[in-house]
Structures are given as structure tokens and as C-alpha cells.
């Protein structure tokens, strides 16, 4: 049903399609403000929850959209390539990734959007990410045991709990909406909280 089989992704037409999709990807990231590392990291100081809003609305739109196309027989979701689940490796890897995210200010995709908008720190971050990828290639054997723990392959939560994929996608949408309400409440609260080292709001102290 897809225009390209997975073994045809190296063809010139598929590469051209991927280039255009990447262009749209970078465009939306930059429009959202994710070409700025200060904007991205503001969520970790509770001030700006755009990262959560953009990520979960994108997930929900794509998730509900894909399941709708599947219901009409336009997409066979079993033929789509999805990342494998490896619970232990992804818990440890996510922890290392999260520390790198708040220290470095970027994740790989946003760093490309940031580099495109001229951020030199994104260039340095990407050089670091390349070094980290190479480092992993050499130390990979020490993680072999970890990679086997909770290695479930393709594992959707809707299958695991025994609901229809569309029900799962709508569940994701509901969770996203609840998260948005929470994010707005935290943002409203934080508007009255001064930054450390800053005079309290409403005070005339210098």
C-alpha cells in the first residue's frame, strides 16, 4: 500500500521523497520554536511546555490519522516499519539521552533545525552526537545482556491490553488533552514565580 517497499528506500525516488519529508519536518520544528535550545529546555524549568504540546499533538494526529486510514483499508499498519521495544535498553538509553538533552540543549532532529537557523551550539552538539554514536559502536558488547531484557519486538500497547488500535489512538488523544490542561495550569502558575536571581514580580527592588 505504501509507495515504497522497505527494500526500495535507497532508490532515487524514495530518497527524494525522504528529502521533502525531512524539509517539512525541519520546517515544523523551527515554526514551533524548536530551532532554539532555550525554548526547548524551558520545559525542564516548568516555564514553557511547547515541547510536550507539540510532541503529543503530533503523536495524536498521526496516530488517529493512521488508524482512520487503516479502517478505510488505505494503510496496512502491520506493514509499517516501527522501532522495536527493548524495555531495559530504552530505559537506560532514555536516561542517558535525557541527561544529554538538558546539558546539550538539543535532540538530534531539533539540532538540525537549529543548525539551519544558524545556532553554532547545534553544530557542536551534532559533532558530540557523532562522537557518542561512534563510542557506542565500540562499547556495544557491554550492553548485550541489557538488550535482551524486555526485548518484545514490535509491541503496541493497544495489542498488549487487548483493545482495537483506533481505541488506543483515541486513548492517546485523551491523554494528550489531559496533559495539555496540566501544562497550561503549570505555565500560568510559573508566570508568577521569579527566576532565581531575579527580583520578585511586582517588587521594585533592583
Amino acid at each position: 500500500m505504501n509507495l515504497f517497499a522497505l527494500d526500495q528506500l535507497g532508490t532515487p525516488a524514495a530518497l527524494a521523497a525522504a528529502l521533502v519529508l525531512g524539509l517539512l519536518f525541519g520546517f515544523w520544528l523551527e515554526r514551533a520554536g524548536f530551532g532554539s535550545s532555550r525554548k526547548l529546555t524551558a520545559i525542564f524549568y516548568f516555564r514553557d511546555w511547547a515541547v510536550l504540546k507539540v510532541m503529543f499533538s503530533a503523536m495524536a494526529v498521526a496516530g488517529v490519522g493512521l488508524q482512520a486510514l487503516a479502517l478505510f483499508g488505505l494503510v496496512d499498519t502491520s506493514q509499517l516499519y516501527v522501532p522495536d521495544t527493548q524495555i531495559a535498553a530504552q530505559a537506560i538509553g532514555g536516561t542517558v539521552f535525557g541527561i544529554g538533552f538538558v546539558v546539550g540543549g538539543w535532540c538530534p532532529g531539533t539540532a538540525m533545525a537549529g543548525l539551519g537557523s544558524g545556532k553554532l551550539d547545534a553544530l557542536v552538539f551534532l559533532a558530540g552526537a557523532m562522537a557518542g554514536s561512534l563510542a557506542f559502536a565500540w562499547i556495544a558488547p557491554i550492553f548485550e545482556g541489557v538488550q535482551g531484557i524486555g526485548a518484545l519486538g514490535t509491541c503496541s500497547i493497544s495489542d498488549a491490553i487487548g483493545v482495537e488500535p483506533m481505541t488506543g489512538a483515541i486513548g492517546l488523544l485523551v491523554v494528550a488533552l489531559l496533559a495539555f490542561v496540566m501544562a497550561h495550569k503549570v505555565e500560568a502558575h510559573m508566570r508568577n514565580v521569579p527566576e532565581i536571581g531575579e527580583a520578585p514580580k511586582g517588587s521594585d527592588a533592583r
Binding site: P83, G100, G104, F125, A129, M130, G132, S133, F136, V146
Partner: peptide, 16 residues
């Protein structure tokens, strides 16, 4: 940025 990038590089590969 360099240090964070390195951690992100390692974390992403371990996480697939």
C-alpha cells in the same frame, strides 16, 4: 553542547 551531544549519541544508539 559537546558533552550533551555525546550522551545523546550514546543514548540514542542504545535505545534504537
Amino acid at each position: 553542547a559537546l558533552l550533551g551531544g555525546a550522551l545523546v549519541g550514546i543514548g540514542a544508539r542504545l535505545s534504537l
